[in-house]
Amino acid sequence: MSNHKLLITGGAGFIGSNFVHHWYHQYPYHRIIVLDALTYAGNRRNLASLEGKENFRFVQGNICDRPLIDNLLREENIDIVAHFAAESHVDRSILGPDAFIQTNVIGTFTLLESFRHYWNEQNQPENYRFLHVSTDEVYGSLNPEDPAFTETTPYAPNSPYSASKAGSDHLARAYYHTYNVPTIITNCSNNYGPYHFPEKLIPLMCINILLGKPLPVYGDGQNVRDWLYVGDHCSALQTVIQKGNPGETYNIGGNNEVKNLDLVTLLCDLMDELAPNLPVKPSKQLITFVKDRPGHDRRYAIDATKIKTELGWTPQETVEGGLRKTIEWYLNHQDWWQPLLSQDYQDYYRKVYGN
């Protein structure tokens, strides 16, 4: 394949940084430009091993900054934009929706407009791509007996977060149909793995077990999610960039539907096995049910038939295998997550869980 030049937005965040490492490992001779605003969930240390590499450049900046985007596209001769930058936590969107509209809607619009003009200047090359990375939450909630989400499932977002991502998806689709901009949309299920900010369910549980703190489970714990190991997600995105068709949407799932309470219980069992000297053991004693959050979707499930049949991609990790890798990473990288438990994080935690 040709030597691509990638602009990866949000590349210091969880999924973005995993994708940067994945692509660099596959193609160290490609040029990678990471653009990240380094908000609370962006962490430059996620990319520490790449700093100083000849084909890697980090730029701190905001995707709403049109002149910056214009300059980066032209200066670096970008041919692939992989757009991960987003406000992504439902609880935070409930507390303060403004940032979600600004980043997810206005930011995506700014990127698309800049890329559209740049692509036209280049005489609309066929090999350029704008990958818009989104979520299954845009589809709303499923009942237990409902079939899984497909690419044609109507949108029905239930939180400010998912509504803002739905808006950005619609913009990416519209830019293909109106302007022929080569956009591709992916909608993934819940990711987990290394570099995951501690507010999210799996790292939150791992860290609270290590600290002997309660494990807050919303409502009755029967909410169902399809869990996708972030390494599988990155390989799917690589496949979509290389083989996917502009204007298409591809759902990416892990084929691992698990109830939240069952997931937390499995995490407890694995932590008891893998972590030495836990303050409370068995750690499932720490499970504490808390008031359910507003608009909490009951079930998500992805039907990933399209990406399998059309592009030949399937996930490789089981939930237990992926959780083992994830737990071992958090056990071996306490120097990564301990500084993230700041006073701001503690204040946010008390707002959400009340303790």
Rank of each mutant, 00 (worst) to 15 (best):
D226F: 02
N190L: 11
H132V: 02
S93F: 02
I327M: 11
D220Q: 12
H170L: 13
G322V: 11
V240A: 03
C206S: 13
N46P: 00
G231A: 14
V133I: 09
Y175W: 09
L261Y: 11
A304H: 09
P279C: 09
A48I: 14
G167H: 01
L211K: 08
P294W: 10
N71A: 15
G10W: 01
P315W: 06
N127P: 02
H177V: 11
R299H: 04
H296K: 10
P276I: 12
S2K: 08
D344T: 13
Y349I: 12
D262W: 01
H196S: 07
E248H: 05
G107T: 03
S235A: 09
S162I: 02
A37P: 01
P216M: 05
P276S: 08
Y192W: 04
Y176D: 04
G61E: 14
I78D: 02
S162N: 04
P125D: 05
N251E: 05
G212M: 08
V352D: 01
V138C: 01
Y27Q: 13
F130L: 13
H117C: 11
F289C: 03
M205Q: 06
N191K: 07
L237T: 05
K53D: 10
N332H: 12
I101W: 07
E248M: 06
H196T: 14
Y330R: 13
N143V: 08
N245H: 08
K243C: 04
K259G: 05
A41V: 07
K165H: 01
E137A: 06
T39I: 13
N277K: 09
R45F: 13
E320N: 09
P160K: 06
I78S: 02
N127C: 08
F56S: 15
L341Y: 03
N158Y: 08
D36V: 10
Q285G: 04
R298Y: 14
P160T: 14
I241E: 09
T314Y: 02
E51L: 15
V105Y: 04
S141N: 06
F58R: 11
L266Y: 01
M205Y: 04
L47T: 04
L112Y: 05
D70F: 06
T265C: 00
R116T: 08
G193Y: 04
K281Y: 09
I94F: 06
A301P: 00
T265I: 15
Y29Q: 12
L171T: 13
T309S: 07
D91M: 08
T183A: 05
W336K: 09
E76D: 10
L131E: 02
I207W: 01
V264I: 15
K53S: 11
T318H: 06
L142C: 06
E126L: 08
N123I: 15
L263Y: 01
